[in-house]
Design a protein around this nucleic acid. Structure first.
Lengths: 240, 240
DNA sequence: TCATTAAATTGGTATAGACAACTATACTTT
DNA sequence: AAAGTATAGTTGTCTATACCAATTTAATGA
């Protein structure tokens, strides 16, 4: 388990050992670990060295320490999922609703100034422009316009837009989505939105703009959405 | 700089000192720090205690260590800051504006149903209720109501609310903020908001609710804010 | 039996020292 | 001039010890 003659640091060996015990469920979430003093005596190493191993795993979130009680295997954080990047489709499923789309238009157009800027393209480079109404349980929730670099998704067809665009990009094209910069602001519906979202004049909407990038930093898409304020509330989990 | 008699751990005091030196550019990115032994001798503390402070900052990404060379101030990752949890104060500074507050009320009140639920308290447990107008360059940006468990911040006074509440909680109380669940929605201003934000009737506002937790999971605060839609856009970086 | 007190256990902080591994520099040898 | 060598300074690892603070457990007393 621990080899003092190894060039590998002792704390690192212990760290790896504990990590694998957690991995293969020898140590289960909620379990109490042997005390630091016990490890030290058992392995004939200093308590401070044990602490160094455990501290690293605590920082990673695999273990938790409680003064006077002991060190425990951390419970898995399901919460983590919420903090990530979710599509409208996934989002609605989580909320227990049935997502659907109505395609308004599907065109290959030259990128105008703002779109070109967000996708790091030269102006007038061809991009797909997809306008959709997003429905949840058949109720209009949002009006969405997606701009996506044509050279990244060459085989894009109208049929694909009927389901989840993200699923297609990740699973069929094998592109890895990295991060997104998203902005949110409030506004009053304009006429176009009002017609599609079926709301009163003067009703508030939540405007969301999202700029999505691949893992390598290439801009993938630029999305502008208008959500009905009376039906949609955006929630996110922010970690330090 | 370091007070050995303070109940605050020495490594924590040094950590805070270094953090603030980096904050106010006394230590600039790329700078070489004095060696660990030098700090130990200078402050008359153990080298291991110095290491504990530095290790924490390395884990946070503020410092980097190179064996045989020394410890350096890390290059700033601006993006990182945006993705994390930021206070209004920090947020406005990043945007190059001057943040300020107008205190409307500061009371110790019994927690009502929703507040108690969010703070995991029994109903009618005393909580601080702080109402403030948030200003940026002297322009009203938001109306904010903070509810915070009274037993967590016993010494809270009106004076503290004049500056940054987060700074006080982290640096003076030594509480570690973990994560926050934040929701955003759009609405039309009500009368109270209209009076304080100085906007037209029927103007849109961005309603933000935030539930902040400590690292150990204890609920710290519940905040309701109404931001002027014409002046404020919320931006966040979302990582997979 | 129940509540109180005391002791034991646990993680948290801190010290002092030692040696290893690595880097940069100055100096010596080839 | 180039290569090798010594040296001082840096972080990395590890030990042994000590005391503190929070919690649990055992002993005690009414």
């Amino acid at each position: 388990m621990i080899d003092k003659q190894s060039p590998m640091p002792i704390y690192f060996q212990l760290e790896r050992s504990l990590r694998s015990q957690i991995e293969n469920n020898t140590l289960k979430p909620g379990d109490l670990l042997p005390s630091e003093r016990e490890y030290a005596e058992q392995l004939d190493i200093s308590r401070m060295t044990v602490r160094q191993a455990i501290t690293n795993l605590v920082n990673e979130g695999l273990l938790t320490r409680q003064k006077g009680r002991g060190t425990f295997v951390a419970e898995q954080k399901l919460e983590q999922k919420l903090s990530g990047l979710t599509s409208f489709t996934e989002d609605m499923k989580v909320r227990g609703m049935n997502p659907a789309n109505t395609l308004l238009s599907f065109e290959l157009v030259p990128a105008e100034t703002k779109v070109a800027e967000r996708l790091h393209l030269k102006q007038h480079t061809p991009v797909y422009e997809i306008k959709r109404i997003r429905l949840a349980d058949d109720v209009p929730m949002a009006l969405e316009t997606v701009y996506i670099s044509a050279n990244l998704v060459k085989g894009l067809t109208e049929a694909i837009t009927a389901s989840s665009l993200y699923r297609y990009i990740e699973e069929d094209l094998g592109l890895q989505i990295g991060h997104a910069v998203q902005s949110m602001e409030a506004a009053i519906v304009n006429e176009q939105e009002r017609a599609h979202l079926l709301v009163q004049k003067g009703a508030p909407v939540l405007l969301i703009e999202r700029n999505t990038f691949l893992k390598d930093g290439t801009p993938l898409e630029y999305v502008k959405s208008s959500y009905r304020a009376d039906r949609y509330k955006f929630t996110i989990d922010i970690n330090r």
